[in-house]
């Protein structure tokens, strides 16, 4: 009934249809996320978490979308699966810090950001989240040293300077805090924390 060429055409047609359907689901998921429909965005890509080449990406994306919905434990479980699948994934190790931060589990944030920093010494996101953990745990001396190192690596960055200023302020070193906050304002004149501190002290 079918010759060889017809059979090839039919198979190619169905494969391209499947690929198009897959791409359509990813696109749909991204669009739903933009509109704030995180649950529907997650559901759209749910089937890819258990099969195919895109399993890792699907796990990361699903975990992130669950984090956005406040389902932190589900998010952590899926980031864990992604880490298990690819233990060298910086994406997954940085990603898992998001639900841990939301739950106030700063010791876990330290563990994962340090794992990232052993692979990528000056990964800014890892340093930033580690500083957040040090701040939440009130480790002011550690934060002071850490933020000082980061301002050397990222001299134009207002964020690291603000952590340095805050650490000094919390240790009672007002002069150092004022000097650092002034430098923060040179880089970001609208910086809320710097303006509030300097407004209070001057």
């Amino acid at each position: 009934m079918f010759n060889r060429n017809s059979a090839t055409f039919i198979i190619t047609f169905f494969i391209s249809l499947t690929c198009s359907a897959d791409n359509l689901m990813w696109e749909r998921s991204l669009e739903l996320e933009k509109l704030g429909f995180y649950e529907r965005a997650a559901t759209a890509i749910e089937i890819y978490m258990t099969r195919g080449d895109d399993m890792e990406y699907a796990l990361l994306r699903y975990a992130y979308l669950k984090y956005k919905q406040g389902e932190y434990n589900v998010s952590i479980d899926h980031y864990d699966k992604a880490i298990h699948l690819n233990p060298d994934s910086l994406d997954a190790k940085l990603g898992i810090t998001l639900p841990y931060m939301a739950q106030g589990r700063w010791r876990r944030v330290k563990v994962y950001t340090r794992q990232v920093l052993t692979i990528s010494d000056w990964n800014y996101t890892a340093h930033e989240r580690l500083m957040m953990a040090e701040e939440a745990m009130k480790k002011w001396t550690t934060l002071d040293r850490h933020a000082a190192e980061l301002t050397t690596a990222y001299p134009s960055d207002a964020g690291a300077l603000a952590y340095y200023a805050h650490a000094n302020a919390m240790q009672g070193d007002v002069a150092m805090a004022i000097a650092a906050y002034e430098k923060v304002l040179m880089r970001d004149p609208e910086h809320i924390e710097a303006n509030a501190y300097l407004g209070d002290k001057k």
């Binding site: 406040g70 389902e71 932190y72 434990n73 589900v74 739950q103 106030g104 589990r105």
Partner: peptide, 9 residues
């Protein structure tokens, strides 16, 4: 335990 429905530890 961390319970997201109750938003607490």
């Amino acid at each position: 335990f961390y319970n997201d429905a109750l938003a607490g530890k």
